[in-house]
Design a protein around this nucleic acid. Sequence first.
DNA 1: GGTTGCTTTGAATCTCGGT
DNA 2: GACCGAGATTCAAAGCAAC
Lengths: 281, 281
Amino acid sequence: MTDGPEQQIIHGDCVEVLSDCPPESFDMCFADPPYNLQLENDLYRPDRTKVDAVDEHWDQFESMEAYDRFTEAWMGAVRRVLKPEGTLWVIGSYHNIYRVGRVLMDVGFWILNDVIWVKSNPMPNFRGVRFTNATETLIWAVRDRERKDYTFNYEDMKRYNDGKQMRSDWYIREPVCAGEERIRDENGQKAHSTQKPEALLRMVVEASTNPGDLVLDPFVGVGTTAAVCKKLGRRCVGIELEEGYVAIARERLAAIEPGCWLEDQAARPPITPRPETLPLD
Amino acid sequence: MTDGPEQQIIHGDCVEVLSDCPPESFDMCFADPPYNLQLENDLYRPDRTKVDAVDEHWDQFESMEAYDRFTEAWMGAVRRVLKPEGTLWVIGSYHNIYRVGRVLMDVGFWILNDVIWVKSNPMPNFRGVRFTNATETLIWAVRDRERKDYTFNYEDMKRYNDGKQMRSDWYIREPVCAGEERIRDENGQKAHSTQKPEALLRMVVEASTNPGDLVLDPFVGVGTTAAVCKKLGRRCVGIELEEGYVAIARERLAAIEPGCWLEDQAARPPITPRPETLPLD
DNA sequence: GGTTGCTTTGAATCTCGGT
DNA sequence: GACCGAGATTCAAAGCAAC
């Protein structure tokens, strides 16, 4: 699995694919599993246009229990192939992150931080019945609790907080994934309903790996993790079940020049520092 | 239980105390459960008695199980005494919020938001091995999923975001040790290690209750929830196991003029708006 | 080429009352 | 409980056309 090209996209179910992988192979894993959104009805904006919701079959689960079994399966498979000092990142929303987080603890991972991705332009709550859901959560955890030698590029991260210790609240400069970065199909529709910004993955990869390290993404989708790894000189194995996504990810990777971000880091930081808050009174 | 003074502090274990309470009595519950049950070296039982070091069978997994049992116990007791349209707020950090959140879903609560308390003055990570842990998480959930008539003062909340829909990221200062709000004992030491800011509770109470509503805090500590309720004209029952905290909370309540914040709301907003992010380049 | 204003859209557990 | 119609309801950033 580590003998292929520096970055590769494998088509298949991550649990099956990883069963052929030797243990303790990967330095880091980033996982963006299905969120198991429970959408009961269509949602319309105040101007009566319909919201293009996440309705893909890969986000449908029979029950919460089924989702927990799914989580235990992929997380156990990932843990086996992680090095003992390797770390796991998982991203989610309130729909799934509490279930995922508890499974993560139960299978033996040790949480290092929960990082909050604060969005500058989240979708509002159109009916005014809740607060605007303005964040997503990333859990960062080490495989074995007793291993203190996981990779954390502390000094590099300081550059993103004005020279001070980097905080766990991240204000991603490229907000919701839109614009030029958003990959579209031949009809101009978004190719993947939940594509993540490259800036977010850049923070993750820079913080917790070194150049040449081997990264795993078991739900690689249209290949954001692999693309960022290629730009940052990390090796990456991305696994994806949907054949359509696999093709897009491979095409995306082919257009990237290896290591092209390595000299560009200071020039264009991926996140903005949290601005000063106003005084209380 | 609702026949006492408008705000009262009850000394005892919340599960026991609530067993004498008629069902569906409360409009809202705010809970700040202990999450120091399982530290690096010291282990505690769910009743917060310390575990003898010779109990070697009391390993990490069992202590997490015990914490879950503890959570199920208090949350079940709370759910019984909440009105069906009543809501529950729980605050926690990454140490416990994933376990608490999953229990919350499993016992039937329906999550409305996860609110991120972003601290302007978090304690840094002294050893530089993680990101500064700059947030805590509040889960807001309605008792019965099908009830849409929970209280949410949408328009009132807009006042705290420049007239626009309030977001789920809240920027509130922590009560620092030097601050006026921090309650101290006769030796000048902080009386409670995790005292919450009144500004945070004010947001919670104003968002999800109306004047005259009955609020429950099963871990009321030094009485922040009860104090804010008194200032905002809400009734409150606070329960606390530690006798020392009970005395402090009662003393604190006695010094508060009922409803003193009701006319002052616009003058002193509890939170700061999310500051502008910096321009792109 | 720059500016202005209108349109589109983003991981969303988003109403209520009558039949 | 399902269906239907009335009615109340949105923020920021990108895309694009017009000027």
